[in-house]
Design a binder for these strands. Structure first.
Lengths: 339, 339
DNA sequence: TAAAACAACTAAATCGTTTTCGGTAGGTCA
DNA sequence: TGACCTACCGAAAACGATTTAGTTGTTTTA
């Protein structure tokens, strides 16, 4: 087993000093041609590559970025991650991923662990636990230490940092407007408790669209679940008892389950009832009929987040200016709408 | 902005030496009670945390593991990743993910980058490009340097290292046997070119099951695509021209597309035709009818891979013994089979 | 010919820890 | 009174690289 070779090895082997080797490999003008060539040849022969850790220690730059997401087995987060990874990689950064599993504690632990020198900056989406607890001290700690932070999708106004989100309100507004243009009157909303910033915004868009179109808001048509867990019973009960002709769901799963259930009742989609779901994931694409979806452009989001972060990481000045980029949602029309 | 505090700061502030501080914080017996208490109190007050990078340099241990996968927006890899991340995190390791994007070059670049001190070991699934090129020198380099490596799912006999796979052949064998027990005679296989180790094994299981049940292998019933890209035309042509009553697909997507197409022809699933797909992903679960699937137990796989890797990383001896763990596939029965 | 300039190289500090090996002061024992 | 502990603490090396500030010996220059 040939261990990794270091500058010291090369120096000793060639009878020169470590600094000479270092400079020769950087093609410094300070070193004579012969010496340089000798050293470079030797380094190539033994496949010398500088040790990343040593360089990190010296430069106080790790070229790593930390990504903390609530869940990795989740299409949206995965696409965001892809966007981050692609851009970061192109810029020479590696990505360390931690999964908070929607837990406040794990989020805190992971953050503190990475903050001790392992990364140059964070990109994250808040866990459900954190949003529920409404405690952002770990984020404040990190930013106070001067570590750049970019929040995406699940953000909070409590923290001053760069952010990138989609206009959830507008997405919901447009979806509901689509329903209304189809002539739907009884438009339901399936959502989660509003400590999720996204749920709150989507609900707001839903309400505003109804009001703007002179439809009254019927609280009975809003089905609110405490978490993202699917509650089959809840769905079945809702659709058995309520007469609705359109459904906006804040996620795919609720929509797919609802579609299956109403289909089992013999109700036709989209003739009798229209569906639109948030997140344009695999399920929307492959359900029957295809689920019209509000695309969140995860990959763009990830790319932008990475851009913003690396920009901050690499800028010398300590600007205290933070921006929030708002992406436009797009409606991907499929078979579940348009009768 | 309060910068991170170091041992040196504490030492200077308290008028003691750096070594004293270091020892005091480790609760060493060498340091007097008063001094220890003073130092510990100060450290807590200023929230001192040792710098990971410096420790890594000292110990030649990063507590990072590198994961290289072909694609992150892919349910199976994501579940494996979750298994890895969970276990690694519990053991105090962080995970650096690189996506090879099925490209040989990216796989090589990422590997070399991480191998220069950033990680203690690798877990990876070979990219399509690498399997196609059949060039494993980058893996050989890494193992020659003594960096532990665990391959999962997409492996190669060319490299001596720990491996974890599922018994793909058996999975296919069992699936076909299930078809035969249902009385199916014309059993098709939808697969990809066999430079994918998994495709090869699955095809072998398919053939063996047929032979063992005295059914002849009809090469016309094997639809082979060059890549994992969906070729709608190819699927439609196949199902228009061939009479088949059961289909085993090496992935979900091919199966879902096929199901949709035959349904559009008015063929009934599972009355007229049965379907089984590899990978028990979201699509299988939510398609109509649900797709009976060969579960690959990604999370277990990831966990086992992480176990094997960390075991090797933390063991002192340089054993040259490598094991391959083979997981049993399980058939998840849904509506697409059993008439 | 002495001073200045230059080319080629090295020593040493630095990044933040850990750890080994001393060292000193005070007390104990013979 | 000297030898020997013991308790407590610090200097310095080490990890692997970069970089600043020299140090040579040779060549120009005035």
């Amino acid at each position: 087993m040939k261990r990794k070779i270091t500058l010291k090895h090369i120096a000793r082997e060639l009878g020169v000093s470590i600094s000479t080797v270092s400079k020769a490999l950087k093609n410094s003008e300070e070193i004579g041609r012969d010496t340089k060539e000798k050293i470079q040849a030797f380094a190539k022969l033994y496949n010398y590559k500088p040790n990343n850790i040593a360089i990190s220690l010296k430069n106080k730059r790790t070229k790593n970025i930390g990504v903390i997401i609530p869940d990795i087995v989740h299409h949206f987060f995965t696409t965001v991650f892809r966007g981050i990874e692609k851009y970061a990689n192109a810029k020479g950064y590696n990505v360390i991923v931690c999964v908070s599993d929607e837990s406040f504690d794990k989020e805190v632990i992971n953050m503190e662990l990475l903050a001790n020198g392992s990364i140059d900056g964070f990109i994250m989406a808040l866990s459900a636990g954190t949003q529920l607890k409404n405690d952002y001290n770990h984020l404040k700690e990190v930013t106070a230490q001067g570590i750049p932070l970019v929040l995406f999708d699940r953000v909070t106004p409590e923290i001053k940092c760069d952010k990138v989100v989609i206009d959830d309100k507008k997405g919901a507004y447009n979806a509901v407007t689509t329903f209304i243009r189809e002539g739907r009157k009884k438009i339901a909303l399936i959502t989660t408790k509003d400590y999720f910033s996204v749920s709150r915004d989507r609900a707001a868009g839903y309400r505003e669209a109804l009001l703007d179109n002179d439809l009254e808001i019927n609280e009975d048509l809003i089905l609110e679940f405490p978490s993202m867990e699917v509650d089959e019973k809840g769905i079945e009960e809702f659709f058995t008892n309520k007469k609705v002709d359109a459904v906006l769901s804040v996620n795919e799963i609720f929509a797919i389950h609802s579609m299956r259930f109403v289909q089992s009742l013999g109700i036709k989609i989209p003739e009798d009832i229209s569906f639109i779901g948030f997140t344009d994931g695999l399920l929307s694409k492959y359900s029957t009929p295809g689920l019209t979806a509000v695309a969140q452009h995860g990959e763009d989001m990830g790319k932008i987040a990475a851009e913003m972060l690396i920009e901050k990481v690499e800028s010398e000045e300590e600007e205290e200016t933070y921006t929030t980029k708002v992406l436009e949602p797009t409606l991907i029309v499929r078979g579940s709408t348009g009768n």
